[in-house]
């Protein structure tokens, strides 16, 4: 890790990004004003419920969905308006690992062919033999035997398939890997293996991750910095330690209170903050603070002012008019 306060090189960033999709009910504001920066060598964790816009944010970073407004910058270049054709060369720099490894591998192609695709597309190795060597090297890096290259996805287990997905993402030696819920569809025991693999690879290869998940504990375990999303917005960001110890946004506090603790003493005394109601429709988000309809500490002012992400501590921001105070009120018996 770099020394504190000296900003490392920014690999990719989003500035005031919005992604709206048309739907029969109206415009779905999947992402509604998100700014974030991913710095070289770090893991930025992005956490939120389903429907919070975290996956769309990841897809927008790869320009796999088109931003409605705002900008996407990768490696210092503004790629917001780049054409599909122009983006192709850029795709080597940002790779993606998908949630469902079964669906993200072409069932008709061998494991080797899938992993080699970035090599072929970007002409990264000369000839079949060199490609084959590289594929076996990549398989070895993710802890799989080289002879699996000739198998098809259905012959592998879920965990093995996700390792293949990771190997494919590594093939082009990208600056950034977007991990979109990489462990969500795996068994619990396999989840830990994949997380350890990702951390080991990051250490050995100096990788940069955007780690998207709904599992707060996984994000805390993986990330150097994290951001919590709610209804298309980032509501809190900071280091996992800051957020874990002193959440400033009531939503984060509610999420954290739902995480079981491995200490029976603490677990018995744990106060759960139960949120009422469902996440509102992103077609018609509440005026003012988006969380106020479910916030146990909502006050009249919350309906009038849309809170901005403001610093509560160095590097720790929250989008709440009563940041800190609201959480303390919720936690006091």
């Amino acid at each position: 890790m770099s020394a504190p306060r000296t900003p490392a090189e920014v690999v990719a960033e989003l500035n005031d990004l919005t992604v709206w999709f048309p739907s029969p009910a109206g415009m779905v504001r999947a992402v509604d004003g998100v700014s974030l920066q991913v710095r070289r060598g770090e893991t930025l964790g992005l956490v939120g419920e389903s429907g919070s816009g975290k996956s769309t944010t990841g897809l927008a970073l790869l320009r796999l969905v088109d931003p409605t407004s705002g900008s996407v910058r990768v490696a210092g270049q503004d790629v917001t308006r780049w054409s599909r054709r122009r983006l192709r060369a850029l795709r080597r720099r940002v790779a993606m690992v998908f949630q469902d490894p079964q669906a993200s591998l072409d069932p008709r192609r061998t494991i080797g062919a899938s992993i080699a695709e970035p090599l072929v597309v970007h002409r990264l190795s000369d000839g079949r033999a060199a490609r084959r060597r590289r594929v076996e090297e990549l398989l070895d890096m993710v802890g799989l035997r080289g002879d699996l290259a000739d198998r098809h996805p259905h012959e592998l287990s879920g965990g093995q398939r996700q390792r293949v997905g990771i190997a494919r993402a590594l093939a082009g030696e990208p600056d950034l890997i977007v991990l979109d819920e990489p462990i969500a569809s795996l068994d619990l025991s396999v989840q830990a293996q994949i997380m350890n693999l990702l951390r080991r690879l990051q250490r050995d290869l100096g990788l940069t991750y955007l780690f998207i998940a709904h599992d707060l504990a996984a994000v805390e375990h993986m990330s150097d910095r994290m951001a919590v999303m709610y209804l298309g917005r980032i509501v809190e960001s900071g280091t996992p330690a800051q957020i874990w110890r002193e959440p400033a946004h009531p939503y984060t506090a509610a999420l954290l209170s739902a995480v079981p603790v491995a200490d029976p003493q603490v677990e018995r005394e744990r106060r759960r903050i139960i949120l009422s109601g469902d996440i509102p429709s992103p077609v018609d988000p509440p005026a003012g603070c988006r969380f106020r309809t479910r916030c146990p500490q909502a006050r009249p002012e919350c309906a009038e002012t849309d809170p901005v992400l403001a610093e509560v501590d160095p590097d720790h921001r929250a989008a709440c008019l009563f940041a800190g105070a609201a959480v303390r009120a919720m936690r006091s018996p």
Binding site: A89, L90, A103, V121
Partner: peptide, 23 residues
């Protein structure tokens, strides 16, 4: 998803049609 994955890798439309869709 595997078509989206191919796009994310940087495969051309023709390549995606020939190698992923057609088979």
């Amino acid at each position: 998803v595997f078509v989206r994955a191919a796009v994310s890798i940087g495969a051309s439309d023709l390549r995606i049609m020939r190698r992923h869709v057609l088979p």
